[in-house]
């Protein structure tokens, strides 16, 4: 299951499962997650055995003395987890946050890379 959205009664913040792209390229897998409003400090990435869990909190600056005319988004929590296979080189997973998008790079382990096999003419 990619995204078990667990609901906690004690927590009042709405919880969303962020929109995610998973792309395979020659060198590995790229995961992009839309998490607007999340600063680097509010992001937790956990890798436990085969489970990669991403948790984040989006906080929007509160403005004093304004009247809200129209609201379509607000403070929220993001939560999503993935199962990764042995093909991924766990030691070298990289993550970066840019413009509200979390970008993770999961390189393929050396042994999983496609290799051309030389055929020797005998």
């Amino acid at each position: 299951m990619t995204s078990e959205v667990k609901k906690r009664e004690t927590n009042t913040l709405p919880r969303f499962s962020p929109n995610t792209d998973i792309i395979e390229q020659q060198d590995g897998f790229h995961i992009y997650m839309d998490m607007p409003g999340v600063a680097k400090e509010n992001l937790i990435i956990d890798l436990k055995e085969n489970d990669l869990e991403i948790k984040a909190k989006a906080n929007y600056p509160r403005m004093e003395g304004v009247s809200n005319i129209h609201l379509e988004f607000g403070d929220c929590e993001y939560n999503r987890s993935f199962t990764i296979s042995d093909v991924v080189d766990r030691e070298n997973i990289k993550a970066s946050m840019r413009n509200g998008v979390l970008e993770m790079f999961l390189p393929k382990a050396e042994k999983a890379k496609p290799r051309k096999i030389q055929i020797q003419a005998g």
């Binding site: 929109n19 995610t20 792209d21 998973i22 792309i23 395979e24 390229q25 992009y32």
Partner: peptide, 13 residues
């Protein structure tokens, strides 16, 4: 814009 490669999952608009 979107990236290139083979997509396993595409949810981002």
């Amino acid at each position: 814009k979107h990236g290139t490669g083979s997509y396993y999952r595409q949810e981002r608009p």
